[in-house]
């Protein structure tokens, strides 16, 4: 265990744990737009920056992204010092200039007192904040269907060659975890469309309800050693089946006991 001080209070952290994880455990609200626990930290949005110092640093302090700064013994952390707040305000100001139409960005900017951007608004700015959560999750799940493409200000998220990605199984994890709900998809008539690729939703053999795509189910069955028939019945019908099976066992037990 490592002892650190966060905003004047002592806290205990596991060796090698990242500062942000300790901060969140203490329920201190530090914003982060590129952070997701399912994937390795990236340090791209810079909103989770905190100011750190140590007694022996003699008044000197530095700013680090807490999402990927491992705890050190006797670290003194300020999550909302004036300078930290100023950095966050400026970053939100920059975000707001680029994504003026994103409700999520507008809300977070407002929390930091930025109601209107000081910079040139990009009229054609979309809502993708290039946090890379979608691509990192896609990589972590083993699909590698989409990627950040290009560099600098012109960077985008896209499938290879901007065509329907062959490796996408339509699991929707990219879209569902996008902090600004930028990634478009549609679920209609047992068909799912995402990244310009159409998927068949796997319908329950009993009631016809759908949960995941056939391609995703086939992938899981094949690669994770799960019988495909598990996926052919929906959760609700599975529960009914379970109750009937257990009912038969119970009736049999009852009979045996009497």
């Amino acid at each position: 265990m490592v002892n650190i001080t966060i905003n004047g209070k002592t806290a205990q952290a596991k060796e090698g744990e990242m500062l942000l994880s300790v901060i969140r455990r203490l329920k201190i609200d530090v914003p982060a737009l590129c952070h997701h626990e399912a994937v390795e930290p990236l340090g791209a949005c810079r909103l989770c920056m905190v100011e750190i110092t140590k007694t022996e640093w003699d008044g000197w302090s530095k700013f680090v992204t807490s999402c990927l700064y491992p705890v050190e013994p006797d670290l003194i952390v300020s999550t909302h010092s004036d300078q930290v707040n100023e950095i966050r305000r400026t970053i939100m100001d920059l975000y707001l200039a680029r994504h003026p139409n994103s409700p999520e960005i507008r809300k977070l900017a407002e929390e930091y007192g930025v109601l209107k951007t000081s910079y040139e608004v990009q009229v054609d700015g979309d809502n993708c904040i290039l946090c890379g959560i979608c691509t990192r999750i896609c990589d972590a799940m083993g699909f590698h269907a989409i990627s950040l493409v290009g560099r600098g200000h012109g960077k985008t998220v896209a499938p290879p060659l901007n065509e329907a990605p062959p490796d996408c199984t339509g699991c929707l994890s990219c879209a569902l975890n996008c902090p600004t709900n930028f990634i478009e998809f549609s679920d209609q008539d047992d068909k799912r469309t995402i990244w310009n690729k159409e998927f068949e939703m796997l319908a329950c053999v009993k009631c016809g309800a759908t949960t995941i795509t056939r391609e995703f189910a086939e992938h899981l069955s094949k690669n994770r050693d799960i019988p495909f028939e598990y996926f052919e019945t929906c959760d609700s019908c599975h529960r009914k089946e379970t109750s009937l099976t257990m009912g038969r066992i119970a009736a049999w037990t009852k009979e045996a006991q009497s």
Partner: peptide, 22 residues
């Protein structure tokens, strides 16, 4: 630098871009 920024972090990607605009 705007051209060569990798675009990963916001201060560099958006900050240098806005400085260049100004």
């Amino acid at each position: 630098l705007v051209e060569e920024s990798c675009g990963k972090c916001v201060p560099c990607r958006e900050g240098l871009f806005q400085l260049h605009k100004l």
